[in-house]
């Protein structure tokens, strides 16, 4: 059960904060609200370290992708003209074009960001290294079992009259 008094702070001597915390705990139990995982907007690219199961170029490319994926957003200084009316028309046209281009760009960035989040999670996921670790543990276990079997066989042979 979460420590409600650590999560919420109510500074009011007229209120019984302990009673509020108790009621929240009771309601949590009654409503069965369970914490769950959510996707995140921002994911930081992982720096390469020698223990990574992926070679350094993979981390380099991931870093590059993180730095570049927003570059589809278009910015340009406003168009100008010495004639005020022409200048206004040019600026209005310029804003209109940027509006539509950047609507497209923002959708593309959402796709790029989603792909990057998936790639980043695959690279940094704690269980990404698990198959190797599991394999090593299994090999150790097999070796131990083989030794044990050999030992048992040896002792069984000794017992044979």
């Amino acid at each position: 059960m979460p420590d409600v008094t650590r999560i919420l702070e109510i500074v009011d001597s007229a209120l019984d904060t302990e009673a509020i915390a108790r009621r929240i705990r009771e309601n949590l139990h009654e409503h069965s609200l369970e914490a769950r995982e959510f996707p995140e907007f921002a994911v930081t690219p992982p720096p390469w370290d020698p223990h990574s199961r992926f070679p350094e170029p993979v981390h380099y490319d991931l870093q590059q992708a993180h730095e570049a994926y927003t570059q589809t957003w278009v910015t340009m200084p406003p168009l100008t003209s010495r004639l005020p009316l022409v200048g206004r028309i040019k600026r209005a046209f310029h804003r209109l074009v940027l509006y539509y281009v950047n609507r497209l760009a923002s959708q593309q960035m959402v796709v790029n960001a989603a792909i990057l989040r998936v790639l980043t999670r695959l690279v940094v996921a704690p269980d990404a290294a698990a198959p190797d670790a599991d394999l090593a543990a299994l090999q150790d276990e097999i070796a131990a079992l083989r030794a044990r079997v050999a030992q048992l066989e040896a002792s069984a042979e000794e017992d044979v009259p």
């Binding site: 979460p2 409600v4 650590r6 999560i7 919420l8 702070e9 109510i10 500074v11 509020i20 009621r23 929240i24 309601n27 949590l28 409503h31 609200l33 369970e34 914490a35």
Partner: peptide, 18 residues
């Protein structure tokens, strides 16, 4: 008001309910 020190969303939701 009520300050939230840790983003435990079920607890925040229960506080809203209260």
């Amino acid at each position: 008001g009520i300050l939230v020190h840790e983003k435990h969303f079920p607890v925040v939701a229960e506080m809203l309910h209260l």
